[in-house]
């Protein structure tokens, strides 16, 4: 799972498999981080001033 673990090998299978996995995890992680930070910022009234506009989504 991590390069420092016994079973890790730098070969094609690991690059493809773990590449896919970490890619997905990164997107999920970054996505959630973005949402959380933005939510904190919105709540604290930073940035957009805390009032979002309801016509920006459906």
């Amino acid at each position: 799972m991590f390069p420092f673990i016994f079973e890790w090998v730098w070969d094609m299978s690991h690059i493809v498999f773990m590449g896919g996995l970490w890619y997905a995890l990164t997107i999920i992680g970054l996505g959630m981080t973005y949402c959380l930070i933005k939510a904190i910022a919105d709540t604290a009234g930073i940035g957009s001033g805390g009032h979002h506009h309801h016509d920006d989504h459906h």
Binding site: Y34, C35, L36, A39, D42, H52
Partner: peptide, 9 residues
């Protein structure tokens, strides 16, 4: 806000 932001993306 969180729910809203999650919905956004």
């Amino acid at each position: 806000n969180l729910s809203h932001n999650m919905h956004e993306i």
